[in-house]
């Protein structure tokens, strides 16, 4: 197949194997990512459009795209869009991520 000039996410018509129909898990954190996107894209807020989500996913690059899971791509794209729009800053994101990790670690230590 001629794949020249195509981006990695553009899969229509490529060679590929049988469709694996097994397995369908949707853990809680993925539901939160899904809900986050729905909240940001709904007509009341219109913070990030579905097309912007997709562009952010496409821009992850071929290597990340194939390595990451579906909702990992989503949350990365959402975060990137929010940074790009100046809605959150990388400083506050870094601080908040450290904070939620510390909280989780403390909870884990207690358990």
């Amino acid at each position: 197949m001629a794949n020249a000039g195509r981006m990695h996410h553009d899969m229509g018509g490529r060679d590929a194997g049988p469709v694996d129909r097994g397995g369908h898990s949707h853990p809680e954190w993925e539901k939160r990512v899904d809900a986050l996107m729905m909240l940001l894209s709904n007509s009341k807020r219109r913070v990030i459009g579905v097309d912007e989500l997709r562009r952010g996913i496409e821009e992850l690059g071929a290597e990340n795209y194939s390595k990451m899971t579906y909702y990992e791509r989503w949350v990365s794209s959402i975060t990137h869009n929010l940074l790009e729009k100046g809605i959150i800053s990388s400083d506050e994101l870094g601080r908040k991520m450290a904070e939620v990790e510390d909280t989780a670690r403390a909870a884990g230590d207690r358990g």
Binding site: V100, A104, R105
Partner: peptide, 29 residues
């Protein structure tokens, strides 16, 4: 953004979601 230490009980992307959601809630979105 750097990956946190290996012993973290939260996955990097789980932490990202929690942090982003918390920031957006703080900001009133």
């Amino acid at each position: 953004m750097t990956m946190r230490s290996e012993d973290s009980v939260l996955d990097h992307y789980q932490a990202m979601e929690l942090a982003v959601s918390a920031l957006l809630i703080d900001k009133g979105y």
